[in-house]
């Protein structure tokens, strides 16, 4: 009943799709992380003209389905640029805008998890602000932030499948294109599911390791 040959025959196409998924993931991560750091810092800012616009942005994006955001960017980029926009760029822009808000909130939570007492203790030993940040705040916050960051990256990796809706030839779209031709949904979508399951499970096991380590340190 299950016929694996359909996977083997089309492995080149599927591999191409998976590569596109990885490419999208890497570019989105490379853009989303720095923007997320800025957003996180903006959410911690005591300057109101920074805090409120950044917070409004974060809340707005987080209440919109990612799929709608992809559509919206897909339709608005041509208006801005006046020409056709490839689905890949529309997807990249959407993912950067969307995932950065999640990375930003993780960074904010990490910063706020460092207790005031720790920071005051650092100052009382005579450190200035930059030394305190360099030796106390950032190392502690970073250790707490890394597991959530990896988890969010796993989510981003899965989210890239949504680029399917604007016709990007990523992994799921490739499987569906092959399925249209050979009608083997069980094998094709099963294969896609297993590949995602394996990659993401490895990621979540790494997170678990880090979290137990962090737990022992406390």
């Amino acid at each position: 009943m299950v016929d694996v040959s359909v996977i083997i025959e089309n492995i080149d196409l599927l591999w191409g799709g998976l590569l596109m998924t990885f490419k999208l993931f890497i570019v989105a991560l490379a853009g989303g992380l720095p923007l997320g750091i800025f957003l996180g810092l903006g959410r911690l800012s005591s300057r109101k003209w920074i805090y409120y616009p950044v917070s409004a942005y974060v809340h707005f994006i987080r209440n919109v389905p990612l799929l709608m955001l992809i559509f919206w960017i897909y339709f608005s980029l041509p208006i801005l640029t006046g020409g056709l926009v490839e689905p890949f760029y529309a997807a990249v822009v959407s993912f950067i805008i969307f995932e950065a808000t999640y990375f930003g909130e993780i960074i904010r939570a990490g910063y706020q998890s460092v207790s005031k007492g720790t920071i005051q203790a650092a100052y009382s030993t005579g450190l200035n602000y930059w030394q305190m940040a360099r030796y106390i705040l950032i190392p502690i916050a970073l250790r707490r932030v890394v597991p959530s960051m990896i988890t969010q990256s796993i989510v981003l990796f899965q989210d890239t499948s949504l680029a399917y809706v604007i016709g990007l030839h990523e992994f799921v779209r490739m499987a569906s294109l092959i399925d249209n031709r050979v009608i083997r949904p069980l094998e094709l979508y099963g294969f896609v599911a297993i590949v995602f399951l394996v990659i993401c499970s490895i990621g979540s096991q790494i997170v678990k390791r880090l979290e137990t380590k962090e737990g022992e340190r406390k």
Partner: peptide
Amino acid sequence: RNIPLLVQLFFWYYAI
């Protein structure tokens, strides 16, 4: 949690 929802929906709708 480790399979994208989109893939899960395709699986339930097309494969099963």
